[in-house]
Computed example of a mutant assay.
Amino acid sequence: MSFIDTPGLLPAFVAEVRARAHGAGLDLYEYDRVTAGLGALDEWPEAFGGVGRRYVAEAEGAAAEGRTVTAGAAYRCAARWFHAGCLMPHPDRAAAAWLAGEADEAMRRSLALLEPEARRVEGEGFAGWLRRPVVGGAAPVVLVVPGMDSSKEEFHALVEALLARGVAVLAMDGPGQGVLAATSAPEPDYHRVVGRALDALGAHEGLDLTRTAVIGLSLGGYYAAKAAAHEPRLCAAVTVSGPYRLDWEALVPFVTETLIQRCGSVEAARAFADRLDLTAPAPTITLPLLVVEGGEDRIPGVVNATVLAEHAPNAELLLVPHGNHLLGTALPDWLPATADWLATRLS
């Protein structure tokens, strides 16, 4: 039996994703209306994609009338909803690829209207948007790295918080993520991807690449920690709800099915999970490291990165007792402080 066919799972899944939807910027009243109309989990992608299409239509209508701000905001809402349609291991991978592509395109159209100075940055194994703050001089840069089933279209609030503090942001998809999920598998040596992204940023003006950092969320937290251990150009790193180690046998079906789909087979997924272990690199992470964790983040088979804070020599732990995975239940308790921490380390 596949994950989405589990009897009685729909209400629990809707409730579990609700905080994540809030963190991603979806209107929760609209989320409740959309999910209340679902008869089964396999309807999820089409329902969320339908909302995305409606926002695109609204954006196109507003743009045709010269209402640029409204159009740009509607395109951004569309990007969020298209992305949210991918937040489950649905067997129709073509539909998931379409949603990811629509999210990417909606964000492109939003930036073209609201931030025409934003630039596409892409290369081997990554694609993202470089956005600059409205300040003079060369800006430091933070790379925002998504997780297992996430993408660059999810973490709008984090990106906006960094931009407001004078930091440029490259929100990126890497192998097996977002718009690249249909053509690549997750990469445990993600530090190589971060290195190529930093190389690509050298072609863009207005950046101070002597001041760079990375923040990774969920599985992206592991990627950020690996980059912190191996990429000497980084000055600081943050992990948010990142894993320290995975135990394949204990992982819940949502995680295993998602990894199997994105890695291509059970064997590849298990091999990927077995390589996710920060025990060896943790003591070598000597740059400033902030580990953000929620006290309610408990996923079977996942050893949380609180352990990383104990073994990395220059690490700080920000533990929010009532925070869940990705801390969508506690945004005011970690996001402003984390953005301040990064801006300070890069000042």
Rank of each mutant, 00 (worst) to 15 (best):
A271I: 03
A343P: 05
L180N: 06
G323R: 15
L38T: 01
M1N: 09
A127L: 11
V194G: 02
V169K: 03
D104K: 08
L290V: 12
V291Y: 14
E187K: 11
T306F: 09
L276N: 10
G221P: 08
L326C: 13
R192W: 02
V142A: 02
E231V: 07
T306Q: 15
E296M: 15
T306V: 14
P332I: 12
G220Q: 10
W44N: 04
A112W: 10
R262F: 01
E122G: 12
I285Q: 13
E16Y: 12
P7Y: 09
A139H: 14
H311A: 15
A71F: 11
P253W: 07
L308M: 12
A74N: 00
L246A: 00
R120M: 07
P288M: 01
P11D: 06
E310K: 15
E46Q: 11
V135K: 12
R53V: 05
S2A: 11
H22P: 01
A40G: 00
L180G: 09
L318P: 03
E124F: 01
A40E: 07
G61L: 13
R108W: 00
F126S: 05
W248N: 09
G85W: 06
D208C: 00
A12L: 14
W248M: 07
W341D: 04
P253F: 04
P146C: 03
L87M: 14
Q261E: 03
A271F: 09
L201Y: 10
G136F: 02
G39H: 08
L219N: 11
A273Q: 08
D92F: 04
L99R: 08
D42Y: 10
F3G: 02
V145D: 02
Y190S: 04
L234D: 03
R345Y: 07
R33H: 04
E58V: 11
G176P: 11
L317E: 00
H325Q: 08
R192N: 05
Q177T: 01
Q177D: 08
A94W: 00
L290D: 12
L26S: 06
D32E: 15
P91I: 00
A139K: 14
L319Y: 05
M1P: 12
F3V: 04
M88H: 06
G128R: 13
R109I: 02
S151F: 12
G37I: 05
W334S: 04
G178D: 02
S110M: 08
R67H: 12
I260K: 06
A197Y: 06
Y31L: 03
D208L: 06
R67K: 09
A62I: 03
L41P: 08
E205G: 14
G125L: 13
V51Y: 10
R132N: 04
A74D: 11
F82K: 05
S2N: 07
Y75M: 03
T35K: 14
D149G: 08
W248P: 03
V307K: 12
T239I: 06
I215Q: 13
L111Y: 09
D277H: 01
H156S: 12
R33E: 12
R53G: 09
V51S: 01
Q177R: 01
I215K: 13
A203T: 11
A164G: 15
D27I: 05
P313I: 02
G323Q: 13
T210P: 02
R18D: 09
T279F: 05
L99H: 00
V320S: 10
